[in-house]
């Protein structure tokens, strides 16, 4: 536990001494803020037009759902932008250690491979949480000017956390393959995007078995329920099993280094 904490702390510190972490956080907030602004703008135009319609026909204005029209789309945008940025967060985790040969220090210290993986994984996850925290301002704005439901917001954040946890575990695995951070980021991004889009051809493939398999593998198909306030154990199980699989493969990948030079 002590070792995990030591590695986690060192990783986090090294994130914040380089401009990378700040750049990622600022970029993330600018883009998600922009998305929020667009969604809110659309929502307000929609509300205005329904009120105008109601005035014309002298009927009471129909209820509008801010969760459905603003929060849910914003969560989806955040998840996609996280995907792009998490590849950059995870690329250095093992690649840099390999390049600087500091991996030699870790491997010859009384630290197990699992502790190494956990320390680095939690550091990546912690940075992701730090990125997410300021986005709560968007929700606060909605609470000030409206009455959104709180449950879908909680489940939405849980979904974001889980999808990030999955992406970080995959990014960590990829980072253990190479000592070149550029290769790591390119490869992680490709895998992330593939997992994102894999169910897109589901409708054009004739066979329903394959279609449903593709939909099952796809990362976002498990995410949308969260943004609508639905907690389903099958989604959580899916995410957790990918994380466990990634840990296992990362462990194998690192151990295999001890056979090579």
């Amino acid at each position: 536990m002590n070792n995990i904490w030591a590695i986690l702390q060192r990783e986090l510190r090294s994130y914040f001494v380089s401009p990378l972490a700040y750049g990622i956080i600022v970029g993330f907030l600018i883009v998600t803020g922009f998305m929020f602004y667009i969604s809110l703008g659309y929502f307000l135009t929609m509300v205005n037009s329904t009120i105008m319609e109601a005035n014309i026909y002298r009927t009471p204005p129909p209820p509008v759902n801010v969760n459905e029209s603003v929060i849910s789309p914003v969560f989806r945008s955040i998840s996609f932008i996280s995907l792009l940025l998490l590849a950059m967060i995870t690329m250095r985790l093992f690649a840099e250690e390999k390049k600087m040969m500091t991996i030699e220090l870790l491997f010859t210290s009384p630290v197990t491979t699992f502790q190494m993986i956990m320390g680095k994984y939690l550091a990546g996850l912690a940075l992701y949480v730090i990125m997410l925290i300021p986005t709560s301002v968007y929700c606060i704005i909605l609470f000030i000017f409206g009455e959104p439901e709180i449950l879908p917001i909680f489940t939405g954040y849980l979904g974001l956390l889980l999808i990030g946890a999955v992406l970080i575990s995959i990014g960590l695995l990829v980072s253990s393959f190479t000592e070149n951070q550029l290769i790591a980021v390119a490869l992680s991004l490709s895998i992330f995007l593939l997992l994102w889009m894999i169910d897109w051809p589901a409708d054009i493939i004739g066979q329903p078995a394959i279609s449903s398999l593709l939909t099952y593998i796809s990362l976002p198909s498990h995410f949308y329920d969260f943004t609508n306030g639905v907690l389903d154990s099958k989604h959580i199980l899916y995410y957790l099993s990918i994380i466990v699989l990634s840990f296992y493969l990362t462990q194998r990948s690192l151990e295999s280094m001890r056979w090579r030079s």
Binding site: R10, R13, S14, V17, S18, M100, M101, T102, I103, E104, L105, T108
Partner: peptide, 14 residues
């Protein structure tokens, strides 16, 4: 064991 590799395993940012 205390091990000093040929190139010291230091983290340049620390």
């Amino acid at each position: 064991i205390g091990y000093m590799p040929e190139s010291p395993p230091i983290y340049p940012e620390m």
